[in-house]
Design a protein around this nucleic acid. Structure first.
Lengths: 342, 342
DNA sequence: ATGAAAGCGCTAACAG
DNA sequence: CTGTTAGCGCTTTCAT
């Protein structure tokens, strides 16, 4: 079924001109005379000619493909970011190649290697599993990299102001009268980002003279672990008399899982428990969820990330990689209220 | 910062052998003697050589990239499918290039053209905007295409059994005692798929001697249109005395939007209104949503789609394109119950 | 078992 | 303005 695709030479032959003339009209470069131009166009049309991007990029020695490393497309936050990145990349003439790393450093390195063989012009990391893998060694100084909504110690970074966001969330809860406020860390959030949010939480707690309690949560396992302590089922935590009356979650998905648990356990939200998330994914706004959360400006993150990466690739940006912070907002909805006693 | 990447020639020079010898060891083809082999490997390591996939695929005259056309990555169903497709493609040695078409035929055609210039080995359509655009003309007979979870009249198709799914949903409602059951059609669902689901709905209604009512819904606009009739705000529909007591939605996201509307309008679900969705996206299972729905076996859809496409590409499948149906299941949750009067 | 040579389809000087 | 020429980095016969 598959007859060989027409080449520029075929077109030249049919149009009765030379290769370069065809090339010139295809690229819209040097003006080509009316008559010859018409013949070339006709031949292109007749042969259904389509330039071979591989050949072009081979000779130009650079592609316009971007490698996009996604943590988990199943997570609406990443999916939305991926979509926005793709759109902005396309708007600048780049084609995106996605890889789902699922937070696995091995998979990440393998994906990076593949993308490197395709000579992608740059990388966008939407999640960065970290460095045990040698990703940094393979990339640094070789090809432009931008970390969007995640942090790598090298390369440009475009991130939400995670510290401030967590502060806002915590202060909101404190303002409501809560004193026993826990931070729930979801493993899907990269360490650096989680660290920043945790620090914001701690800072706000400390500023009010309140003690911090950081938990690591595996929603799928229904297990929580007190920072540096022993693991236990989440039911136990909320059954204890000293249970937190509010939690700041490291992301919306974790917060939603927590709501889900609370609903099943008969804990009333926000009566018995206030919850605030982070991200403002679409479903957070649904009436049934109505999650109080910290909104990340995804559009802005994506736009700036691609802009910076394109700048590096095209040699417009020459200074050393920097860090860019995008503002966040507190969105108050229905999952937060004063604690029972207040 | 960017010094030229090492080529096969550099490696040959450093190792003191010929190009072809290097090529042989890189590809693991013809056995290369121990000593030379070692030298080559050392050189590769020293120069950090990485084969250029562009050059390779140019000379081999075929790539191992797959074009994946996604409707909307913001929709969890598509996002999940995209993720699964990528995983299965990678497992077979293919790299996926995604394009978000947002249901726009123009964007779809442009994306197809780009992918074609990259000479992708095949296409997976997760959404197919349709044919006004000339996508078919550009692809048919030229490169293998598989439609997964959407229908194109040409090329292989791997779809859930939409007709049967809608039947199941409708019969479930009928079994509960509903007689006024509407079908809500969400524009994001491709026409062919929507058509099949609608037909399943109609068939089940007819089998019970019940009249069909098909509405086209634009969740974002809060507008419903009776099939072939006039548009009106959704509030009106549910305020009328003859309002449906149950609806079958063409997809989960539409169903969830409907729940959201019902919650805001003070309609009780499932007391005043039963709702069943289609897809079984992750959030459908959340306690707060608890949507009765038709589950699609996404893993199976993705696996089979990629398998068929790879078969075509690799020349294993030679028969004419066919249609493959994957079973669906009814998942009963909390949004369906007998109507008020029953 | 290894090397030499001929391209893959295209762009980019450089002449005419 | 148009044609000629020389590769881009690699695979692949074909000799050796």
């Amino acid at each position: 079924v598959t007859e060989r695709a027409a080449t520029i030479l075929d077109v030249a032959r049919v149009a009765g001109v030379s290769k370069s003339t065809v090339s010139n009209v295809v690229r819209g470069s040097a003006a080509v005379t009316g008559e010859k131009r018409r013949r070339v166009l006709a031949a292109i049309d007749q042969l259904d000619y389509r330039p071979n991007a591989l050949a072009r990029q081979l000779v130009q020695r650079h592609t316009n493909m971007l490698g996009v490393m996604v943590g988990d497309l199943g997570n609406p936050f990443y999916a939305e970011m991926a979509k926005l990145i793709e759109r902005h990349a396309a708007a600048r003439g780049y084609t995106a190649m996605f890889c789902n790393t699922l937070g696995d450093a091995k998979a990440e390195l393998a994906a990076v290697e593949t993308l490197l063989e395709y000579r992608v012009a740059g990388f966008v990391f939407l999640a960065y599993a970290g460095d045990a893998s040698g990703v940094r060694g393979a990339l640094e100084g070789r090809v432009p990299v931008v970390f969007v909504s995640c942090e790598g110690e090298w390369g440009d970074t475009v991130c939400a102001n995670d510290f401030h966001g967590a502060e806002l969330a915590t202060e909101h809860l404190i303002g409501l009268g809560h004193t026993s406020i826990a931070y729930f860390s979801d493993p899907i959030v990269e360490d650096a980002v989680d660290g920043a949010r945790r620090a914001g939480y701690r800072s706000a707690m400390a500023a009010s003279g309140l003690p911090s309690q950081v938990f690591h949560w595996s929603p799928s396992l229904h297990l929580v672990t007190l920072d540096g302590g022993e693991a236990g089922p989440i039911e136990e935590l909320f059954a204890s008399p000293s249970r937190p009356s509010a939690v700041v979650s490291s992301n919306d998905l974790g917060a939603i899982d927590l709501l889900d648990f609370a609903d099943r356990a008969g804990l009333e939200v926000p009566g018995d428990l206030s919850v605030v998330g982070f991200d403002d994914v679409m479903i957070a706004g649904m009436a049934r969820v109505s999650l109080t959360t910290i909104r990340q400006q995804q559009e802005e993150l994506a736009r700036e990330g691609v802009e910076i990466l394109a700048g590096r690739i095209e040699g417009r940006l020459e200074d050393s990689p920097g860090e860019h912070r995008v503002d966040v907002d507190l969105i108050v909805r229905g999952t937060t209220a004063p604690p029972r006693g207040a």
